[in-house]
Design a protein around this nucleic acid. Structure first.
Length: 580
DNA sequence: TGAGAGTGTCATAAC
DNA sequence: TTGTTATGACACTCT
């Protein structure tokens, strides 16, 4: 029994570690029952695209416990480290963990799209799904589908984290191992039904890059749509538990590939993993199920591994990553010589920091701008718009020739495009709105002069830039206004508290003064009653009083009464004199 | 259906 | 002179 409990606990912790790596927070405190250090986590849901988290301010809160619960990014950010730290603090009884890596899917190499020139240009940004040396990718592509018992991977220390894409849910329980061995068919079929591993990888990889080739662009788009279908109608609605769904939503970068399989195969895994664990996960994820789609794509597209890496050390700026999901053009497009294609996900979010503090991985554009730069930083657009933002610089010619397979989706994308994006597309400007807005003025002037634009295009470029700048300025202005209002409200509340405090002090002081005055009068009467005048009679308190001098001497003085009656008599006399 | 919030855009002033 | 920023005002959309 003791051994079973130990195995059970170890399995829970292993699962917790893995879930923490993918962003799912699990409270296994109740399961551990004091066996190990309590691990307490709160599921706070996904991050908002609007939220800018000042990581640099909280960089010292390594354990994350001090993080405000309304800051989901921070909690998400510290979850993995905290869990690992806590596990590490357990000391010597390190659980002998075996990770059974079962590959979820294998995609033929022919499906591997190329990201065109952007692939090489945005290596740093698109590497989120590729572990160093494409290790995970290689494993995913070359490893055959095998049972967990065949591929056991020792859990390495945190200093040498195993590629997440290689990892899957594991257990040391024999029962689980045996059952997992039978899951391959289900898992593979579940994933193949909706989206392949390679699709997910390439879709995410593609969002960071540019696609110059039309067919490649469409491939990526279709893959992305496939992923959308997966998350909207596929495994999430069928087999996946909400908890796992939320975990997938909070999934960072590459781990989504394997987790897609995990999500799809939850029903099977539920047989071999403790139901209580999944119940816990389900409870965690029920609230986030509605927004799972945007959350998933948030994680897929907006997380730059480089930036994630930087979170540990710096960067109070949020991510602004442009998605490279080239979409089919519209019929209004005219032919153009432009073959450059880039997506853009909205205007640069309002943040003076973004403009004034060029940061690593944040404002690459302003420092080393080039038309092929694909990394942007957007805080201002919602996730839905974020993912549906098509490129405004599609090669019009190719688009016009190719039939559209999904007109409804195209119209939806066009409808969600801004007017400037539509205008830019109409005039086939080879730059995205974001590029136009964010490029340095010198570059902008060079662009205006060196590309042989027509007057209409030049005017549109200037207007787009002006409107984009002004849009950001308006956002900043409104933010400042709200901050000012908030500050004033806080000041008002503070002053009201101070006023109430002063009023209470005033009342207390008046009360004290009254008591002291009463005591002084009583004391004066006592003293005067003890004193005698020349005739030996006690001094009348109504006619005498005590005065305390500056030197501390106390003297008896007669009470000075105002001569009201005399002055009144004088006026009466004057009135009588006037009458006479 | 009206109210309110949020947002984009324009006009303008200031730097 | 030009570009940028800040801000009021207006219109529009969405909840």
């Amino acid at each position: 029994m003791q051994i079973a409990k130990k195995y059970f606990t170890e399995s829970l912790i292993q699962l917790t570690i893995l879930l923490s790596l993918i962003g799912v927070r699990v409270d296994i405190d109740s399961y551990l029952s004091g066996y190990y250090t309590p691990l307490t986590e709160i599921n706070l849901g996904p991050s908002s695209a609007y939220i800018q988290t000042p990581f640099h301010i909280l960089r010292d809160t390594l354990d994350g416990y001090g993080v405000h619960p309304k800051c989901p990014e921070l909690d998400y950010f510290f979850a993995s480290r905290r869990l690992l730290d806590e596990v590490r603090t357990l000391g010597s009884p390190r659980f002998h963990t075996q990770l059974n890596a079962w590959l979820v899917h294998q995609v033929p190499a022919t499906d591997k799209p190329e990201c065109g020139p952007s692939t090489s240009n945005s290596t740093d940004s698109s590497s989120g799904l590729e572990s160093p040396g494409d290790e995970s990718r290689d494993v995913s592509e070359h490893l055959p589908v095998r049972g967990p018992a065949e591929e056991d991977v020792k859990v390495k220390e945190e200093e040498e984290p195993a590629p997440i894409s290689q990892l899957a849910l594991s257990s040391t329980l024999e029962r689980e191992v045996l059952l997992l061995s039978d899951l391959d068919a289900d898992i593979t079929s579940a994933i193949s039904r909706d989206v392949s591993l390679h699709d997910a990888m390439l879709t995410s990889a593609g969002v960071f890059g540019l696609a110059s080739d039309r067919s490649e662009s469409r491939t990526v788009t279709q893959q992305q749509r496939a992923l959308f279908r997966m998350e909207s109608t596929g495994s999430l609605n069928s087999d996946a538990s909400p908890g796992m769904a939320l975990g997938l939503a909070a999934l960072p970068f590459a781990s989504v590939c394997n987790l897609t399989g995990n999500v799809s195969s939850h029903s099977a895994l539920g047989d071999c993993l403790d139901e209580a664990v999944f119940d816990q996960i389900n409870q965690l994820g029920l609230e986030g199920l509605d927004t799972i789609g945007s959350q998933l794509m948030d994680c897929l597209d907006s997380i730059d591994p480089q930036v994630l890496e930087d979170m540990e050390s710096d960067s109070g700026l949020s991510l602004e990553i442009i998605t490279s999901s080239p979409s089919p053009g519209s019929s209004e497009m005219s032919s153009s010589s432009s073959s450059y294609c880039e997506d853009e996900c909205g205007a640069t979010g309002y943040s003076s920091e973004v403009d004034s503090v060029p940061s690593k991985g944040i404002m690459d554009y302003t420092t080393t701008w080039s038309p092929t730069e694909s990394v942007w930083h957007d805080h201002s657009y919602s996730s839905a718009t974020f993912f549906n933002q098509p490129s405004v610089t599609l090669p019009c010619k190719n688009i016009k020739e190719e039939p559209l397979s999904d007109d409804d989706g195209l119209r939806l994308e066009e409808r969600e495009m801004s007017r400037d994006e539509l205008r830019a597309r109409a005039l086939c400007l080879p730059f995205s709105v974001l590029q136009i807005v964010n490029m340095p003025v010198e570059e902008f002037l060079e662009v205006l002069d060196g590309h042989g634009f027509s007057p209409e295009q030049v005017t549109l470029l200037r207007d787009i830039r002006r409107r984009g700048k002004n849009k950001l300025a308006a956002q900043n202005c409104r933010k400042r206004k709200l901050d000012a209002i908030t500050g004033l409200q806080e000041e008002v509340e503070r002053l009201q508290v101070q006023r109430d405090k002063l009023l209470r002090e005033k009342q207390l002081t008046a009360k004290t003064m009254g008591a002291v005055g009463h005591q002084i009068r009583q004391l004066t009467r006592d003293i005067l009653a003890r004193l005698r005048d020349e005739s030996g009679q006690p001094l009348n308190p109504d006619r005498f009083t005590l005065q305390c001098g500056a030197n501390g001497r106390v003297v008896v003085q007669p009470v000075r009464r105002p001569a009201v009656s005399t002055s009144g008599n004088k006026t009466d006399k004057r009135k009588k004199e006037k009458k006479q």
